[in-house]
Amino acid sequence: MLTPEHIRDFLDEVKDPEIPVLSLNDLGVITGIEVAEDGFVTVRMTPTFAGCPAMEYMRAEVEQSLKRHGVQAFTVQMSFSEPWNSNKISEKGRKALKEFGLAPPQPYQGILVLDILEYAECPNCHSTNTEMRTPFGPTLCRSMHFCLNCRQLFEQFKPL
Protein backbone atom coordinates (compact mmCIF):
# COMPACT_ATOMS: atom_id res chain seq x y z
CA MET A 1 0.00 0.00 0.00
CA LEU A 2 1.37 3.39 -1.03
CA THR A 3 1.80 6.05 1.63
CA PRO A 4 2.39 9.80 1.27
CA GLU A 5 5.98 9.15 2.42
CA HIS A 6 6.53 6.85 -0.59
CA ILE A 7 5.25 9.56 -2.92
CA ARG A 8 7.49 12.14 -1.26
CA ASP A 9 10.48 9.85 -1.86
CA PHE A 10 9.54 9.51 -5.54
CA LEU A 11 9.42 13.31 -5.82
CA ASP A 12 12.97 13.60 -4.49
CA GLU A 13 14.10 12.71 -8.00
CA VAL A 14 12.20 15.61 -9.59
CA LYS A 15 14.48 18.65 -9.77
CA ASP A 16 13.97 22.30 -10.53
CA PRO A 17 14.98 22.43 -14.24
CA GLU A 18 16.68 25.81 -13.75
CA ILE A 19 18.55 24.70 -10.60
CA PRO A 20 19.13 20.99 -11.20
CA VAL A 21 20.61 20.37 -7.73
CA LEU A 22 17.36 21.27 -5.99
CA SER A 23 14.52 18.74 -5.65
CA LEU A 24 10.92 19.91 -5.52
CA ASN A 25 10.75 18.66 -1.92
CA ASP A 26 13.74 20.80 -0.93
CA LEU A 27 12.40 23.76 -2.91
CA GLY A 28 9.24 23.59 -0.80
CA VAL A 29 6.70 23.66 -3.63
CA ILE A 30 4.99 20.37 -2.74
CA THR A 31 2.29 21.48 -0.31
CA GLY A 32 0.32 18.29 0.16
CA ILE A 33 0.27 14.59 -0.68
CA GLU A 34 -2.76 12.42 -0.03
CA VAL A 35 -3.44 8.78 -0.76
CA ALA A 36 -7.14 7.88 -0.68
CA GLU A 37 -8.39 4.49 0.48
CA ASP A 38 -8.84 3.37 -3.11
CA GLY A 39 -5.22 4.34 -3.83
CA PHE A 40 -5.99 7.59 -5.69
CA VAL A 41 -3.07 9.98 -5.23
CA THR A 42 -3.42 13.76 -4.95
CA VAL A 43 -0.29 15.90 -5.10
CA ARG A 44 -0.67 19.61 -4.42
CA MET A 45 1.91 22.10 -5.65
CA THR A 46 2.30 25.85 -5.48
CA PRO A 47 4.42 28.08 -7.73
CA THR A 48 7.57 29.80 -6.44
CA PHE A 49 6.97 32.86 -8.62
CA ALA A 50 3.55 33.17 -10.28
CA GLY A 51 5.11 33.82 -13.69
CA CYS A 52 7.77 31.09 -13.48
CA PRO A 53 7.74 29.29 -16.86
CA ALA A 54 9.30 26.20 -15.25
CA MET A 55 6.24 25.45 -13.10
CA GLU A 56 4.28 23.70 -15.87
CA TYR A 57 7.39 21.71 -16.68
CA MET A 58 7.72 20.69 -13.02
CA ARG A 59 4.10 19.64 -12.87
CA ALA A 60 4.61 17.43 -15.94
CA GLU A 61 7.75 15.95 -14.33
CA VAL A 62 5.77 15.10 -11.20
CA GLU A 63 3.20 13.31 -13.33
CA GLN A 64 5.95 11.44 -15.17
CA SER A 65 7.57 10.42 -11.90
CA LEU A 66 4.29 9.08 -10.50
CA LYS A 67 3.71 7.07 -13.70
CA ARG A 68 7.25 5.68 -13.61
CA HIS A 69 6.59 4.35 -10.13
CA GLY A 70 3.42 2.64 -11.24
CA VAL A 71 0.92 5.11 -9.80
CA GLN A 72 -2.03 4.98 -12.19
CA ALA A 73 -4.75 7.10 -10.66
CA PHE A 74 -3.60 10.54 -9.60
CA THR A 75 -4.06 14.26 -9.96
CA VAL A 76 -1.52 17.05 -9.61
CA GLN A 77 -3.07 20.34 -8.57
CA MET A 78 -1.42 23.75 -8.72
CA SER A 79 -2.84 26.35 -6.37
CA PHE A 80 -2.10 29.36 -4.17
CA SER A 81 -3.90 27.95 -1.12
CA GLU A 82 -0.59 27.54 0.70
CA PRO A 83 1.53 30.19 -0.98
CA TRP A 84 5.24 29.55 -1.33
CA ASN A 85 7.85 31.67 0.39
CA SER A 86 11.60 31.30 0.51
CA ASN A 87 11.57 30.08 4.14
CA LYS A 88 10.14 26.85 2.71
CA ILE A 89 13.48 25.92 1.14
CA SER A 90 14.92 23.14 3.30
CA GLU A 91 18.34 23.17 4.99
CA LYS A 92 19.48 20.51 2.53
CA GLY A 93 18.22 22.73 -0.28
CA ARG A 94 20.11 25.75 1.04
CA LYS A 95 23.33 23.75 1.17
CA ALA A 96 22.77 22.49 -2.37
CA LEU A 97 22.20 26.05 -3.62
CA LYS A 98 25.43 27.24 -2.05
CA GLU A 99 27.42 24.41 -3.59
CA PHE A 100 25.79 25.23 -6.92
CA GLY A 101 27.19 28.78 -6.58
CA LEU A 102 23.87 30.48 -5.83
CA ALA A 103 23.55 32.34 -2.53
CA PRO A 104 20.59 30.87 -0.62
CA PRO A 105 17.89 33.29 0.57
CA GLN A 106 18.34 34.57 4.10
CA PRO A 107 15.63 33.04 6.34
CA TYR A 108 13.45 35.68 8.00
CA GLN A 109 10.72 35.98 10.59
CA GLY A 110 7.52 37.95 10.19
CA ILE A 111 7.57 40.58 7.48
CA LEU A 112 10.30 40.61 4.88
CA VAL A 113 12.13 43.92 5.30
CA LEU A 114 14.28 45.71 2.74
CA ASP A 115 17.53 44.79 4.54
CA ILE A 116 16.88 41.12 3.91
CA LEU A 117 16.14 41.69 0.23
CA GLU A 118 19.51 43.41 -0.15
CA TYR A 119 21.52 41.10 2.13
CA ALA A 120 23.50 38.30 0.53
CA GLU A 121 26.48 36.19 1.48
CA CYS A 122 28.96 35.66 -1.33
CA PRO A 123 28.89 31.95 -2.25
CA ASN A 124 32.55 32.14 -3.36
CA CYS A 125 34.34 33.74 -0.38
CA HIS A 126 31.48 33.83 2.20
CA SER A 127 31.89 37.56 2.78
CA THR A 128 28.77 39.51 3.68
CA ASN A 129 30.40 42.72 2.42
CA THR A 130 28.23 42.63 -0.70
CA GLU A 131 25.80 44.91 -2.51
CA MET A 132 22.72 44.24 -4.60
CA ARG A 133 23.23 45.24 -8.23
CA THR A 134 19.69 44.52 -9.39
CA PRO A 135 16.71 42.67 -7.93
CA PHE A 136 16.32 40.83 -11.25
CA GLY A 137 18.43 38.13 -12.86
CA PRO A 138 18.56 35.33 -15.41
CA THR A 139 15.43 33.71 -13.92
CA LEU A 140 12.56 35.26 -11.95
CA CYS A 141 13.82 33.77 -8.67
CA ARG A 142 17.32 35.27 -8.85
CA SER A 143 18.80 38.67 -8.05
CA MET A 144 22.32 39.87 -8.90
CA HIS A 145 24.88 40.99 -6.33
CA PHE A 146 28.49 42.09 -6.23
CA CYS A 147 31.01 40.94 -3.63
CA LEU A 148 33.16 43.86 -2.46
CA ASN A 149 35.62 41.40 -0.91
CA CYS A 150 36.46 39.03 -3.78
CA ARG A 151 35.20 41.47 -6.46
CA GLN A 152 32.98 38.90 -8.15
CA LEU A 153 29.41 39.16 -9.37
CA PHE A 154 27.17 36.43 -8.02
CA GLU A 155 23.50 35.50 -7.99
CA GLN A 156 21.15 34.91 -5.10
CA PHE A 157 17.92 32.93 -4.86
CA LYS A 158 15.65 35.83 -3.90
CA PRO A 159 14.04 35.95 -0.49
CA LEU A 160 10.27 36.17 -0.95
Binding site: P47, F49, A50, G51, C52, P53, T134, P135, F136, G137, P138, L140
Partner: peptide, 14 residues
Protein backbone atom coordinates in the same frame (compact mmCIF):
# COMPACT_ATOMS: atom_id res chain seq x y z
CA UNK B 1 16.87 44.99 -20.19
CA UNK B 2 16.77 42.06 -17.74
CA UNK B 3 14.67 44.00 -15.21
CA UNK B 4 11.92 44.96 -17.67
CA UNK B 5 11.95 41.47 -19.20
CA UNK B 6 11.66 39.88 -15.75
CA UNK B 7 8.85 42.21 -14.74
CA UNK B 8 7.09 41.35 -18.00
CA UNK B 9 7.20 37.68 -17.06
CA UNK B 10 6.03 38.39 -13.51
CA UNK B 11 3.13 40.53 -14.73
CA UNK B 12 1.95 37.86 -17.18
CA UNK B 13 2.05 35.37 -14.29
CA UNK B 14 0.03 37.76 -12.14
Amino acid sequence: DIAFSSMAQDKLGH
